[in-house]
C-alpha cells in the first residue's frame, strides 16, 4: 500500500469551553483514492473528525488537540486553513451559510482568485465545474436565489474548482430531495473513480453509502467503534442497532428472514440487487 494521504495518530480533541473530548484517541489511516463514509449519531464527532482534516480544528476553533493529524504529510496544527485548502476541499451541511458572492460564477471564482489562478484559466474552469455539478448556464444567477439543492451543488463546485486531492462532505444532502441526493453521490463517485480524488462523506444515508463507499467508519461518542468495508460493517446489524444507527433495508430484511424464520443463509446483502436475486431464489426454491 502507498503512503496514507490522511493519518490520525492517537488524536484526542476537546473544544474550547467544554470538558468532554469530542474525539477520543482516534487512530486512522486513509489511502489516496479511497471513498470513505463516516457514520454516527449527532454528536458522535463526525463533523469534528472532518474539521481536523482541513485544519479548522484546531487552528481556527482553538481547543485542545493531542496526537497528530497528518494530511498529505503536513501536520494540520502547523498550517493555516487557507494553506490546507490547496489540498483539502470541505463542503458543509448548510449551503446557504457558505455563499458570499453575487453570482454563481463569482462564488466558484472565489477560491481560484485566492489561489491566484489566471483569468483565462478561470474562464475555462468555472463553466466546466458548474457543468460538472449540473449547474451549467447558471453563471450569472444569484446564489441566494437558488434552491437548496442547487446551492449545495454550487457549494461543492466552489470547492471542486480548486481541484483538491481530498473532498470532505459534511451531510451534503441534508437539504436535498431524493434526486438531488443521488446526483451529489453520483458526482462524488465519479470524481473518486475518474480523478482518483479521496472522498470522505459524513452521512446518515446508509443505503447510498453501502453502494458507493470503499470503507465505512462508525463513530460513537468520539471513538471509532467500527472500521471496515460496507459489507463487513452493514452485516453487523445487531451492533448497529445497539448504536441506534440505521442499517440498509435489505440487510435488515435478511436478518429478520434469517434469525426469525431461518430462511436466510450466507452473506447479508447490503444493497437491493443481491437481496432481490436471493429472494427470487428463495421463492423459486419454494415453488419448485
Amino acid at each position: 500500500m502507498s503512503d496514507p494521504i490522511i493519518s490520525f495518530t492517537d488524536v484526542t480533541y476537546t473544544y474550547a469551553g467544554t470538558d468532554e473530548p469530542a474525539l477520543h484517541s482516534i487512530s486512522l489511516e486513509i489511502q489516496p483514492g479511497e471513498y470513505v463514509a463516516v457514520l454516527g449519531l449527532n454528536g458522535a464527532g463526525k463533523t469534528t473528525l472532518g474539521l481536523c482534516v482541513n485544519g479548522v480544528v484546531p487552528t481556527m476553533l482553538g481547543g485542545e488537540l493531542t496526537g497528530t493529524v497528518l494530511v498529505g504529510g503536513l501536520d494540520v496544527s502547523e498550517y493555516p486553513v487557507r494553506e490546507m485548502s490547496k489540498l483539502v476541499g470541505m463542503v458543509f451541511d448548510n449551503p446557504e451559510f457558505q455563499m458570499s458572492q453575487m453570482s454563481a460564477a463569482e462564488e466558484v471564482a472565489l477560491g481560484l482568485e485566492n489561489a491566484g489562478v489566471p483569468y483565462e484559466e478561470m474562464r475555462r474552469i468555472i463553466p466546466e465545474t458548474l457543468e460538472l455539478v449540473g449547474l451549467g448556464g447558471f453563471e450569472e444567477r444569484s446564489p441566494l436565489g437558488l434552491s437548496g439543492g442547487q446551492q449545495q451543488r454550487l457549494a461543492i463546485a466552489a470547492v471542486l474548482a480548486m481541484k483538491p486531492q481530498i473532498l470532505i462532505m459534511d451531510e451534503p444532502t441534508s437539504n436535498l430531495d431524493p434526486i438531488g441526493k443521488q446526483e451529489v453521490f453520483d458526482m462524488a463517485a465519479k470524481l473518486n473513480r475518474e480523478r482518483g480524488m479521496t472522498v470522505i462523506v459524513i452521512e446518515h444515508e446508509v443505503e447510498v453509502m453501502a453502494r458507493y463507499a470503499d470503507r465505512v467508519i462508525v463513530l460513537d461518542a468520539g471513538r471509532i467503534v467500527m472500521n471496515g468495508t460496507p459489507q463487513e460493517i452493514f452485516s453487523r446489524v445487531d451492533e448497529l442497532d445497539a448504536l441506534k444507527l440505521r442499517v440498509p433495508e435489505s440487510a435488515a430484511l435478511a436478518r429478520v428472514l434469517g434469525s426469525e424464520y431461518g430462511l436466510w443463509k450466507g452473506q447479508v446483502p447490503i444493497t437491493t440487487e443481491p437481496a432481490v436475486s436471493a429472494i427470487n431464489e428463495l421463492l423459486g426454491a419454494k415453488n419448485a
Binding site: V56, R82, M84, K86, F97, E113, A115, V117, P118, Y119
Partner: peptide, 27 residues
C-alpha cells in the same frame, strides 16, 4: 453570529486571506 462563523470557516477553507498573488474573475 452562527452564519458568520460558518461563513468564515467556509471562506478560509477556500483560501481566503492567503498571502500569494490574487487574481480577479471580473475584468
Amino acid at each position: 453570529i452562527e452564519r458568520v462563523q460558518q461563513l468564515s470557516i467556509s471562506l478560509e477553507s477556500r483560501g481566503f486571506g492567503s498571502n500569494g498573488v490574487k487574481t480577479s474573475y471580473r475584468q
